[in-house]
Design a protein around this nucleic acid. Structure first.
Lengths: 250, 250
DNA sequence: ATGAACGTTGCACATTCTGCAACGCACGCA
DNA sequence: TGCGTGCGTTGCAGAATGTGCAACGTTCAT
């Protein structure tokens, strides 16, 4: 829509392929050298491009800084919230959003069940890290060495008979979660409550948050809850897309 | 130099602070809404900006993709080489450049000593990982858990009486290197050869390569070699700056 | 129903960008 | 030493391009 800007921006992917000199840039843009020069100068002033020692142009530090700053100022919660609401709208159960922070997994958002029976949880509260679906999802993405180190350090409280009993079992479960791309907690924290969860990933593919749907046995059986898995995964993927800077579907 | 492009690029840092709507962008640019709209549209077509579900604009995925692609197409060796030559010019000793790759540390560049006595090493050859200064620098940057895991797996050959004897000693040495930001190998690989090295870091601060200066005792004592440390560190920093997308000094 | 806030469009004006041609400079070759 | 080529750079005149305005269409909230 704006020719000048359009041309200037076309330089960026071109330089991403590798350093290039003025003539090459002008040629590939199909413009006169003097025009390319002025565009490069403007990009240079903004730090998006710089000149290395052999005089050729390269993408500059500012680009990395911008990308980083943008990620830091991104709020998963803000982006996820409407999606969580929509999910709750469809299935009616409690929906949680959680992140990993300083050795803990914390709930950072929650949409209450529309059924009369609710489960206890609080935003900001640490999650039962050895059993919760969201915790498994977040830890499963750690590099293997860190996963092992962390697993060794944890306590394994027997909330119920189905709680994760020890480090070995936990690591095995994490490997499974990593493999399949989703996680469950079937009565591992409270006998009568089941959860299904899926990971939310950033632009680099790393897991940045996890979400889950929880419901007590009295409302739906574990089997029925599992039928929601595709929906949960689709929601998580929609959030991932939007979080990582792709236009939302539709 | 180019007003239109200048304005368009000014939008990026603005959006890095957080999502903004058309009016806010127009205001902060000091232009009419319709102008801001056209600029945003152009940025949008290039994927640098997109519109999230609440209609506000945000930095887009393309920005991350560009930054990533640029990093992948960057060649440390190409950038480092002139600096290594200059260093060799000043001190005369052998200069090495190395990276970590698949459980090994490999030499990827070398400038030969100008003294008659040379040391044996080859580009592409794996480095003695438990003793070489460059290896210590590269491994010291690993997260603690991975450092431990790797140290346990390694063999500790006794090249000389001063070789690193075991995992515990190696981890201690890595902690020291991490702390001080430089490393040495004083006769750990071959009795008569000493090295001083410094790390080369990327835009995110992670160590991407390491360089060292090596010289045999018959040419300079370890003490004299250590006097080169400031020069080595300055060279490594100059390479880091250029590699991470900042204009080279002067 | 009514108004405000916001994004969007078409248009006439002139600001801003463009390509040209000429210059300066460094490098390599004779 | 001198010439030639390749590259980045500058000033300029013409015109294409971007600009702000004013008016319209929507969507919300009151």
């Amino acid at each position: 829509m704006s020719q000048t800007v359009d041309r200037a921006l076309s330089i960026l992917p071109l330089l991403a392929e590798g350093p290039a000199d003025l003539g090459q840039v002008a040629d590939r843009l199909g413009v006169h050298k003097s025009t390319a020069l002025r565009l490069l100068r403007t990009l240079h002033e903004h730090g998006l491009v710089f000149r290395q020692s052999d005089q050729r142009y390269r993408l500059g530090a500012r680009l990395f800084a911008l990308a980083q700053e943008a990620v830091e100022n991104l709020d998963v919660r803000e982006i996820a919230h409407p999606h969580l609401l929509a999910l709750n709208e469809k299935c009616g159960h409690t929906v949680h959003l959680a992140v990993y922070e300083e050795q803990e997994v914390l709930y950072i958002d929650k949409v209450e069940s529309r059924y009369p029976v609710r489960m206890y949880s609080r935003i900001g509260k640490p999650v039962a890290i050895t059993v919760a679906a969201v915790a498994k999802l977040l830890l499963a993405d750690f590099p293997e060495a860190e996963r092992r180190a962390l697993a060794e350090k944890l306590d394994y409280p027997s909330y119920t008979s189905r709680s994760t009993p020890n480090a070995a079992a936990f690591l095995k479960e994490l490997a499974l979660v990593r493999e399949q791309g989703w996680a469950t907690d079937l009565g591992g924290h409270e006998e009568s409550i089941n959860c299904v969860g899926a990971p939310i990933r950033g632009a680099d593919g790393r897991v940045v948050a996890a979400m889950s749907v929880s419901a007590p046995n009295v409302v739906v059986t574990a089997e029925e809850l599992l039928k929601l898995l595709p929906l949960v995964r689709r929601t998580a993927e929609a959030i991932s897309r939007e979080y990582s800077g792709h236009a939302p579907e539709k």
